[in-house]
Amino acid sequence: MTAMSTRGFARLASGAAGTNFGYLDEQTKRMIRRAILKAVAIPGYQVPFASREMPMPYGWGTGGVQVTAAVLGPADVLKVIDQGSDDTTNAVSIRQFFARTSGIATTTSTAAASVIQTRHRIPEHRLKEGQVLVYQVPIPEPLRFLEPRETETRRMHALSEYGLMHVKLYEDIARHGHIATTYAYPVQVAGRYVMDPSPTPKFDNPKMDDCPALQLFGAGRERRIYAVPPYTRVRSLEFEDHPFTVQRFDRPCALCGAADTYLDEVVTDDRGGRIFVCSDTDHCEERRAAGHRGEAA
């Protein structure tokens, strides 16, 4: 699956000299741009858009790619991450796709990027004003697993009828003694719409709140775009007696020694050896370049 998809991807991208800047045609870009503007004006609300076929399968970030393609200009510097990493197949493919179809500069540095497309992580490095963070979203509707009918979820959003969401979190507490949801943890944006932050670990939820960067979300298969403007309140749902908390790790990163980052488990041998390292590879490399060392480095 992986090899087949990336081959097709590379073939199309390499023959892309004849495509428009950023691959999409101008009419499609205008349609997506109009959806983005309304998404920014109505924070957390899911704007329907006419998602296009992209030269990659659904599930590989077609929503994020379309949003990025509509936003990018010749002066932009693009970073793409997949679970925090700049060098996985998905991240490399999307970065090359835009380098070839628009000729723009790419980077792995969070600070140097003007547009960052992400699958399921928010960089550890604090984002700044003027940056745009584009999320790839598989299922944009936070109420979908509770109510399968789109007509109903749309009505629930219209009426701010979010009791069901709290019931779901309460069932977590009843069953596990605590809220067991660890990713795609629902948030309320600017005190109104409940939104799926995409399957980021809930560790990243606090970074969405009062963020200086503009956050855009694209769901290709589900055909929705939504947004969180800069400096906007993003509150994770919680109960008074069960406040929202993030994951804590009981050890620092084995490579850079950071104690405040989200860690991935990496199996190092076939005898059960494992280390925990920063999921954000750029952040980890920057720290090591600055002289920080973990126990495995």
């Binding site: 870009k29 983005i36 920014v40 990018l72 010749p74 403007p229 800069p230």
Partner: peptide, 19 residues
């Protein structure tokens, strides 16, 4: 130059509504 000019205009409008 319709492609970059439209992009630049959109980007300015997006930033204006976002800020």
């Amino acid at each position: 130059d319709p492609v970059p000019d439209a992009q630049g205009t959109f980007r300015a409008v997006m930033e204006a509504l976002a800020r």
